[in-house]
Each structure stands twice: as structure tokens, then as C-alpha cells.
Amino acid sequence: MDEEYDVIVLGTGLTECILSGIMSVNGKKVLHMDRNPYYGGESSSITPLEELYKRFQLLEGPPESMGRGRDWNVDLIPKFLMANGQLVKMLLYTEVTRYLDFKVVEGSFVYKGGKIYKVPSTETEALASNLMGMFEKRRFRKFLVFVANFDENDPKTFEGVDPQTTSMRDVYRKFDLGQDVIDFTGHALALYRTDDYLDQPCLETVNRIKLYSESLARYGKSPYLYPLYGLGELPQGFARLSAIYGGTYMLNKPVDDIIMENGKVVGVKSEGEVARCKQLICDPSYIPDRVRKAGQVIRIICILSHPIKNTNDANSCQIIIPQNQVNRKSDIYVCMISYAHNVAAQGKYIAIASTTVETTDPEKEVEPALELLEPIDQKFVAISDLYEPIDDGCESQVFCSCSYDATTHFETTCNDIKDIYKRMAGTAFDFENMKRKQNDVFGEAEQ
């Protein structure tokens, strides 16, 4: 370990593993360490099931009705991949897709007046949907046509809207959309967690709705994908990429100290040895004095023996409960997957309800979601602090990732990755940087 590296990475969460992969592909010498004996950090999948019970201090362990412990891979952080989103792009560019198998999530649902409705995925579904009345549908269709044709580089498509100054509230007004449709559009399509976006320039919202539609167009059922064997497969896929390009991995490796000289990182000390480096990437748990708390998320993992009611017996789905429907500031989400994804025993389902904490009784906040899941065989409640770095790391060369937020997709995580890359490399992130180099010394032969 007593060696000189360009970059040392602490923690094998998804953000850290993707950055480690990119740095290795770009010719950097990388050492990647984790104090845990497993990959994934906060974003790991726990197996066998006995391990999950232990982690949540349920000492009696799983009953026999849960089947074989080894058949379970339970995500600690519930997220899906947008089919046309940035993480899929990263997987394709790096060819990490060859280590993973994905399934399309069967449906996306939205909560309205105590019931759940399928988010329409085709024009026919939209016309048949009970989510809105006849005239509302016509106006909504006009709005969707506007979004589909919108091109930020072609003012002819703006229809009198200025993407940089017109607020989204004004765009909704222009198409005369009612409150329910606005809730549905902002939260189930643009996937905002709160209503803060309404008074911001509309460009980002329009682009988010386009991303949803384009992702949906790829597979038809929903815009989301999920990897077989759980999300823990993602960091491992990128760790393989890093290793192929010469990255060194050490799990179960305690970090005793991060060594600084004149305010700059110069190395990491572990078990009496020092590895030197020019730059350091880590998750917040490794540098508690360089991060601040930015809120909390509650996630309740529920094991069920039945599909969720009114989802047409889907073996995977997402449910969004827009905040307006339950008098909150932030949406509540449910991600459900099952034995069909090799993450649970035969006939079992895993539904994870999550939201940003707003009160001193977080469990009560998630109740509307839990009511949709009854009866629940077993619950595991996790309340996590969200951390963000206190500075950009440019001076110390210590670059810290943000905690995983309450969103049900990876777009915010990818933004964090691109942002850290830019601060480390001094140049904007470009997907081309992730391409495997042809015929290089570490390149794998085609399968």
C-alpha cells in the first residue's frame, strides 16, 4: 500500500465507483478503499435476508415463511433508472452494461384523492384515464405537443414562451391547466419533490418532461429500469471497470487518518501504512468535519406477500404521492420490486416508501404510502441524515459526494458526479471521457 497514487477513493457507493471508473479509464492511477467488507456503502443491496434483520437490530431473524435468505437482495436506497437518463448513458458509454441485466418497471402510478391511478404512457391511455376530465385532456394534450416540439435552440418552437424568464406557473396558465393536472405534471412527469420549481424559469421543467417522455418511448410500460439482483450491482459494475483499467481495490480496510500538508491532501493512513495521493474522493462518512447536515430522509422497507392493490398485479412499480394531495411540502414515493428481479424469495415483494422528513414524527409522514401497502409482513425503518460538503474541495483537493436524496431516480446523483468531475479535472464533464479506450493495455477482449 505504500505507494504513490493520482487519486484515492474512500467508500464504494455508486458515486465513488463511477468516479473511480472514469478516473481509471482516463489513465489515472487509482486506489479504492472501503472500511466495509462489502461494496456499495449507503447504496448497497443487503443479502442474505438475515443480514438485513441484523442491521435493523431485529434479533429474532426472519421467519421460515420468508423463504431462503440467499434469495434476497434488499436495497437500502430505493431508486430506478430513467431509461433515457444520465446513468444509463454512463453505463452505455463505459460498457458496464455487459455486467448487468435490466428489466423495465411495469408501471408508474400517481395518488389522487386517496386512490392510485396509472400515469398514462400512451395517448390512448391518456384519453381513457380517469385522472382528468374530457376538456382537461384536450388542454393537457396541447401542452404535451408543445413540450414535444420544444427545442431550446429554435425560438420558432417557443410559442411566445421565453425559456429563460417565463416561469412554469405562467406556462401552466397559458395552457389553462387545472391544479390536479399541474400536480401530476410537476411531480409524476417532471419528478420534482416540491413546488419550488413553479416560480423558476420553465426551461428545466420542460426538459425534465421531455426526458420522461423519451424514456417512456424506449420501452413503453414506464420510463424506469431496474437491474436484476438489486442496485448493489451498479457500484460493483463500475468497480470492475476501474479494476480492468488498473485500479487497486481494498475492502474491509480501516481508514485511520487523512493526511494533510499546508491545507492540501497528501495521503491516507491505514493500519500503520500511508498511501500518498494528489486528490481524494470520499463519501460524507469519511470526513464528518468537512460536511454539513442538509436534512433527513425516511425510508421504510416493507416486505409483502402480495402485489400492491390497484396496480394490475404489477411485479414492479412506482407510486408518487404528490405533496398537495397530503398537505406536505415534499412528495412521498413508493418503489416496489419483487422475486421477478431476483431480489426476493418466490411470491414475495419489496416495497420501499420514502420521503424528505418535515416533522418530528417521520413515520407518521409516510402513513399515506403504508396504507396502500397493507397487509405488511415486516417493516424496517431507516431515518438517514443527508450531508453535503461545506466547500468545493478545490483548495484541499478533498472531494466529497452528497448523500443520496429522496428522489426515486439517479439524475441528482449523476449531477453530483459531473460536478465533482468538473472540480477535479478543471474541465466540464463530457460523456466521451467515459469511453473505454480501444486496444489499450487494460481493455477487455470482446465477449
Score class of each variant (00 low, 15 high):
2 D>H: 04
2 D>V: 04
2 D>C: 01
2 D>G: 05
4 E>A: 01
6 D>F: 02
12 T>N: 00
16 E>A: 09
19 L>R: 02
20 S>A: 11
22 I>S: 00
22 I>M: 08
33 M>P: 11
34 D>C: 14
36 N>E: 13
42 E>K: 07
46 I>G: 03
50 E>R: 06
53 Y>S: 03
63 P>Y: 14
63 P>T: 01
64 E>V: 11
64 E>K: 08
65 S>N: 13
74 V>W: 10
75 D>Y: 00
79 K>R: 09
81 L>P: 05
92 L>S: 15
99 Y>S: 06
101 D>N: 12
101 D>V: 06
102 F>S: 04
102 F>C: 12
103 K>R: 11
106 E>K: 03
106 E>Q: 06
109 F>Y: 04
111 Y>G: 02
114 G>I: 06
117 Y>D: 09
121 S>C: 02
122 T>P: 05
124 T>N: 02
128 A>M: 09
131 L>Q: 06
132 M>V: 11
139 R>S: 00
141 R>P: 08
144 L>M: 10
145 V>G: 08
153 N>V: 09
157 T>I: 06
159 E>A: 12
162 D>Y: 03
165 T>V: 09
167 S>C: 13
168 M>I: 06
169 R>G: 10
174 K>E: 08
178 G>V: 04
181 V>A: 09
181 V>S: 11
181 V>I: 11
184 F>P: 14
194 T>V: 12
194 T>F: 15
194 T>M: 15
198 L>M: 00
198 L>I: 14
201 P>F: 15
203 L>T: 09
203 L>H: 07
205 T>A: 11
207 N>C: 15
208 R>H: 05
211 L>S: 06
212 Y>E: 15
223 P>V: 00
232 G>R: 05
234 L>S: 01
243 A>S: 04
246 G>T: 04
251 L>T: 15
252 N>T: 03
252 N>E: 14
259 I>V: 12
264 K>I: 12
265 V>A: 10
267 G>E: 02
267 G>C: 05
269 K>W: 13
271 E>Q: 13
275 A>R: 03
280 L>R: 01
285 S>R: 04
287 I>L: 06
287 I>T: 09
289 D>Y: 05
292 R>M: 02
292 R>G: 07
295 G>Y: 12
300 I>R: 00
300 I>Q: 01
301 I>W: 13
315 N>M: 14
317 C>N: 05
319 I>V: 07
321 I>S: 00
332 I>S: 01
337 I>R: 12
337 I>V: 09
338 S>F: 01
338 S>P: 02
340 A>P: 00
345 A>T: 08
346 Q>L: 11
347 G>D: 07
349 Y>S: 04
358 E>D: 01
359 T>Y: 04
367 E>Y: 02
369 A>L: 03
372 L>I: 10
375 P>H: 00
376 I>D: 14
383 I>S: 02
384 S>A: 00
387 Y>N: 02
388 E>F: 01
392 D>S: 02
394 C>T: 13
397 Q>P: 03
398 V>L: 06
399 F>P: 02
404 Y>P: 13
405 D>A: 05
412 T>L: 11
416 D>E: 12
418 K>G: 13
422 K>Y: 15
427 T>M: 09
428 A>V: 12
429 F>A: 00
436 R>A: 03
440 D>H: 13
440 D>Q: 05
445 A>H: 12
446 E>Q: 13
446 E>Y: 15
